[in-house]
């Protein structure tokens, strides 16, 4: 167990050094949330019910989600590209754990977008920002980040098993923002989309973080959001675990672990 933890932490650290300068991820964690944050702030701030916290949470989650979407669906092909995939697969370490650690590193990196979102609201627009329930907010953030990490883990083998699905996933970025209510309240969406929102980890992440930050969600409401984060994230992680096995066996059959 401690060995597994060590490996995951080391993998996260390697990832941190390798990807922190990756332009694509920097786009996901910094540039895109910056534009999203600034534009939504401009668009929504004259509405009567405007709440800067809404923009902060939405912007931060959009950054975390995009970064994990990009990093997750590129995780395995990146290793293949630099030639380390065979070395990882032929080592006795669990490949699932290695990629898990790597994406955990990316997840920590993606938290930049939370700082950024806060900075936009507090410094650029000068709103006084206070978190109503800091403890609950921290727990919500933890659950949210874990579930989004699990979503990244789910994207990783999916993008390899079906390359078309990988491209399709990238195209789903904005629809998922919308369905999760990151850009505007989902009340603006037609009613039939609600069940879809309910199975998306970013939706529950937004509910929990928003609620804890504003202090307008009671404890049962928070517990419900945490439970659904746990459920959706856990389900994706289990499917991911199963897909990882399939990916590896299939690649060893087809001879596609290496580029050459």
């Amino acid at each position: 167990m401690t060995a597994a933890l060590r490996l995951a932490v080391q993998s996260a650290w390697v990832d941190f050094q390798e990807v922190a300068v990756n332009g694509f991820l920097l786009f996901g964690a910094v540039w895109q949330p910056f534009f999203i944050g600034v534009t939504t702030m401009y668009m929504l701030r004259h509405r009567a019910d405007f709440d800067p916290m809404y923009v902060i949470v939405g912007t931060a989650l959009s950054g975390i989600f995009s970064t994990l979407l990009f990093a997750g669906s590129g995780a395995i092909s990146h290793e293949r590209w630099i030639g380390t995939l065979e070395l990882l697969v032929a080592s006795p370490a669990s490949f699932f754990l290695v990629i898990g650690g790597r994406l955990a590193g990316t997840t920590v990196f993606s938290l930049l977008s939370l700082l950024l979102a806060y900075g936009i609201a507090a410094l650029l627009f000068g709103y006084p920002i206070a978190i109503a329930e800091p403890g609950w907010f921290a727990i919500s953030l933890l659950f949210a980040v874990a579930a989004l990490w699990a979503t990244g883990m789910f994207f990783a083998p999916l993008a390899i098993l079906w390359r078309a699905v990988g491209h399709f996933l990238l195209g789903l970025e904005y629809p998922i923002f919308a369905l999760s209510g990151l850009l505007f309240p989902i009340l603006l969406l037609p009613g039939w989309t609600a069940p879809i929102s309910n199975i998306l980890p970013p939706y529950w992440a937004a509910v929990a973080m928003h609620g804890a930050a504003r202090g307008d969600l009671d404890l049962p409401g928070l517990l419900r959001a945490w439970f659904f984060l746990f459920l959706t994230g856990g389900a994706l992680l289990l499917i991911a675990k199963w897909l990882f096995e399939r990916v590896l066996t299939r690649a060893r059959r087809a001879g596609t672990l290496a580029l050459s």
Partner: peptide, 24 residues
């Protein structure tokens, strides 16, 4: 044979440390 298959942003020493972790 060949030069691929290393983490280029890591030092040689850190590459070895990481592979030592992978090999427990």
């Amino acid at each position: 044979g060949g030069e691929r298959g290393l983490y280029y942003r890591l030092s040689g020493r850190d590459n070895l440390r990481y592979f030592a972790e992978l090999y427990a």
